[in-house]
Design a protein around this nucleic acid. Structure first.
Length: 830
RNA sequence: GCGGGGAUGCCAGAGUGGUCAAAUGGGCUUGGCUUAGGACCAAGUAGCUUAGUGCUUACACAGGUUCGAAUCCUGUUCCCCGCACCA
């Protein structure tokens, strides 16, 4: 490891690597970042999404993420909060299993080695984690509680098993939750998702749909994420209308009951399980051909397909008009939403319109806007706006908005329909046909059916000896695991070999941090209720409708099961931006990765932290360029050099500066405007580097820097003879009274004067061809002190004399003193 | 298609009605220091003009509101990120 050693003015060299090691060791040995519940102190729980330990390295994107949290944690700690800031690992998951398959390494070994590596790199960041609270979800001490919660949920009917068409990833050889199969592609490997019909385990997240939506109001999250969750939950209010089909009532969901009289056909999803019961003999051939076609087309193409379908031969009866309505099957109706069949109103719904045109189904107009004159025949596209109702018997002439209510009421009166709410969100599919996950604690018995494993038998340990070469779930190859006795009747039975998806693990890990060593319970409720909810959560936006919605669900369930007394896990959420390189996300496969060590080996980790926090707001995506790193490095060196500029006394100007600095830095850190904080710090460091600084204020400056550059700050803190850790020192408080704008103005006046002088010098040189030698400044008496001849002289590199305008002995051959104004002195150059 | 966020000087990025030719850092230019280099210090970095001034052109493009706009409104182009036939 090569460390760039930089000379400062005293020709000392600073060995950043040694300083980092020294303080990291001291922090660890003194356990200063370990926390306990303390009712006398206000708690603050700050958390970064726990990482998957796949990569045995960290790139600067990781460094950025972790630093964002660490700065906040450090400031909160210094501000006197009892800070919980833990780290752990999301260590179950497919990559470990793939490695096992390909390289013959056992997933456990692979995972544990990865954790060791990533921890080493994380520790080198110097973050103030409480490492004693570490957890990893692949450890039985953790996952046994997944099993425990599963059983609790099973008891309450919140976990259940059903056969359903599900998303299947051929490459991962596993099912995926809806949330994991976004856009028809596997979230992990990007492979096309196909559909399979399998029996699977689900958590009943739909039972919480409304709460999940409602409680978004309670939390301070980026609007974007809230909108994504809102859309995902997809609440829509409408009316359920019962249509009579072959003597049976079929509920049909619609948001437009006002158009009920405009229904000219029905469409059932071509994937509907009961489809064939509607297809008459005469249409069977057609149906088979169509279904074959659908199956053969890729999910990707289905989105682009035209609306197609066929007539089933069956009819429905419109409950109000009593019209006989043909039932079609169509590829554009979603089987799982509503009842999988829709009433089609071609005049007022674009999809229905297209379908009707294609198959020459009649179009019946029932809503007419006030000022337009079109008919069913002249309609070019569906009319979805407001208007008055026609062709609707008793409801004619009503405004359609009113008609919605009237028609719904009429249906309710006849028990032919009711007001209802529908959600897009589906139950959460948790089972995976994979080895490296939490075994689902149930047993299948021929006599007793699905039998939950008794709580006393937990944990169901994942057997280590399995055959990874098996194409199926390797777990099925562990015979002694699979073949068990039924807990109820003791006859031979089979154990469930599906495991839980990783999002179960990550749905409550933040609770376990509060009490990570508990052997009796998942956690002690007193401890959890003290620390939770998380005050500030930090992580990527990609989890908007996965982890972030599951965790909210889980917490709500645990509250209803009386494990905890709060119903939202994360009060504030911060999404960090992604670091790009060469226009793309950093990734190993693209080869555009900049490693933590690329920067830290050369300049030290404090430089890496400072630079990353300085160069762009943490929430913005940024393009990586290491061109500016030197700048951050120089500043750190300046901080070191400043120690040689300590003065004995402080003056009003210095006091003003430092208080303004405290104010700005504190405010900007609070809102994650780290670059602004750092700009203020840079300014101050440059200013004090020039003017010197009292020891007392240097201490303040070091404290303000410490969250960004903790090693540097500790080192200097020690150097100036302070005892104890700066990491535990009290965050400076502003004294607003000492902030005096006058000094800022004087500084600006000096800057302007310097510019003026240089400007004149240039003009003089151009005009007269001679260099000005001496510069005389005539300030009004009140401002005389604001102009320092030495300072200005150094800046313009000339000899400078400053006079008061009323100084009788001043040298002023051209009477320039008369030009002096407040904030703008007279200047004479010769 | 729908929803959200963007487009600022050579680069990265501040800036949301006047105090903005626009923070800060980098790069580049010039000067100082230095045997030299590095480091460090200072100045400059849209154009013209001027004893410290004034003007013009500028914050994707085109319009508009305003005494006044990088900042507000409208439209256009491009980029990113989500969702995608949800009845």
């Amino acid at each position: 490891m090569v460390i760039k050693k930089i000379k400062n003015n005293n020709d000392e060299t600073i060995n950043f690597a040694a300083i980092e090691k020294k303080w990291q060791k001291k922090w660890e040995e003194s356990k200063i970042f370990q926390t306990k519940e303390d009712n006398k102190k206000k708690k603050y729980y700050i958390l970064e999404m726990y990482p998957y330990p796949s990569a045995s390295f960290l790139h600067i994107g990781h460094v950025r993420n972790y630093t964002i949290g660490d700065i906040y944690a450090r400031v909160k700690r210094m501000q006197g909060f009892n800070v919980l800031y833990p780290m752990g690992y999301d260590s179950f998951g497919l990559p470990a299993e793939t490695a096992a398959k390909k390289q013959g390494i056992h997933p456990k070994k692979y995972t544990e080695e990865s954790i060791k590596m990533i921890m080493k790199y994380q520790k080198a960041l110097g973050n103030s984690y409480d490492w004693s609270r570490i957890l990893a979800s692949h450890e039985p001490e953790y996952y046994r509680w997944n099993q425990y919660f599963f059983l609790k949920m099973l008891e309450k009917g919140l976990a259940y098993r059903k056969k359903a068409p599900i998303n299947w990833c051929e490459k991962c050889q596993s099912v995926l939750a809806n949330e994991e199969a976004e856009g028809g592609k596997c979230w992990r490997c990007g492979e096309e998702v196909t559909e399979k019909e399998l029996e699977q385990w689900f958590f009943k997240i739909t039972a919480y749909a409304d709460k999940l939506l409602e409680d978004l109001k309670k939390i301070d999250w980026p609007e974007k994420i809230k909108i994504m969750q809102k859309n995902w939950i997809g609440k829509s209010e409408g009316t359920e209308i019962l249509f009579d089909i072959n003597g049976k009532k079929w509920p049909i969901f619609t948001t437009r009951p006002d158009t009920l009289f405009g229904v000219t056909f029905m469409v059932i999803s071509a994937k509907h399980p009961k489809l064939m019961s509607l297809v008459t003999k005469e249409h069977k051939k057609e149906a088979d051909a169509f279904l074959k076609k659908i199956k053969s087309s890729k999910p990707e193409d289905i989105e682009k397909l035209d609306k197609e379908g066929f007539f089933t031969g069956s009819y429905a009866i419109n409950p109000l008009s009593k019209d006989k309505i043909p039932i079609w099957a169509g590829n554009f109706v979603i089987a799982e939403y509503g009842s999988g069949m829709v009433m089609a109103v071609p005049a007022h719904d674009q999809r229905d319109f297209e379908f009707a045109k294609k198959y020459k189904i009649p179009i019946k107009l029932v809503v007419v806007p006030a000022d337009e004159k079109f008919t069913s025949e002249t309609l070019k596209e569906a009319y979805t706006g407001a208007g008055n109702i026609i062709n609707s018997e008793a409801f004619d002439d009503l405004e359609n908005i009113e008609a919605i209510e009237h028609i719904t009421k009429a249906l309710e009166a006849k028990k032919l329909g009711k007001k209802t709410t529908n959600y897009k969100i589906r139950d959460w599919l948790i089972s995976r046909q994979r080895y490296w996950g939490t075994p689902i604690p149930v047993i299948y018995c021929d006599k007793c059916g699905i039998v939950p494993v008794p709580e006393k038998d937990l944990p169901i340990l994942l057997p280590e000896k399995v055959d990874f070469k098996s194409k199926d779930n390797p777990l099925t190859t562990a015979k002694e695991f699979v073949n068990v006795k039924c807990p109820k009747c003791k006859s031979n039975a089979k154990r469930e070999t599906d495991t839980m998806g990783g999002f179960v693990d990550s749905s409550w890990y933040f609770l376990r941090y509060c009490d990570n060593k508990n052997k009796e319970k998942p956690f002690d409720d007193k401890k959890v209720n003290y620390w939770m909810p998380v005050n500030q959560y930090i992580g990527g936006a990609e989890h908007a409708v996965m982890h972030l919605i599951y965790a909210r669900f889980f917490v709500k369930v645990l509250k209803d099961l009386k494990f905890i007394n709060f119903d939202e896990p994360f009060m504030k959420l911060f999404n960090q931006g992604i670091v790009y390189k060469d226009g793309a996300k950093m990734s190993k496969s693209k080869g555009n990765v900049v490693f933590q060590t690329d920067i830290s080996d050369k300049y030290g980790i404090d430089t890496a932290r400072l630079f990353l926090m300085f160069v762009a707001s943490p929430d913005k995506q940024m393009e990586w360029t290491d061109e500016g790193v030197e700048g951050a490095f120089r500043i750190i060196n300046k901080i070191f050099r400043l120690i040689n500029k300590l003065t004995d006394s402080k003056n009003a100007e210095e006091e003003s500066k430092i208080n303004l600095l405290i104010k700005r830095v504190s405010e900007n850190i609070e809102t994650f405007d780290y670059p602004k904080s750092i700009v203020s710090l840079f300014d101050a460091i440059n200013y004090f580097g020039e003017k010197g600084i009292s020891k007392e204020n240097y201490k303040i400056l070091l404290k303000l820097i410490s969250p960004f550059c903790p090693h540097t700050a500790e080192e200097l803190w020690e150097k100036i003879g302070e005892k104890g850790f700066i990491s535990l020192a009290e965050w400076p408080k502003v004294n607003e009274k000492k902030i005096d704008e006058k000094f800022e103005q004087l500084e600006k006046a000096t800057d302007k004067t310097v510019q003026d002088i240089l400007n004149i010098l240039r003009i003089v040189k151009e005009k007269n061809g001679k260099e000005g030698e001496k510069v005389y400044i005539y300030a009004i008496p009140k401002e005389l002190e604001g102009y320092n001849a030495e300072d200005i002289g150094r800046r313009i590199n000339k000899e400078v004399k400053v006079f008061a305008v009323n100084d009788k002995k001043k040298y002023d051959p051209e009477g320039k003193a008369s030009k002096a104004k407040p904030g703008k002195p007279g200047i004479y150059i010769e």
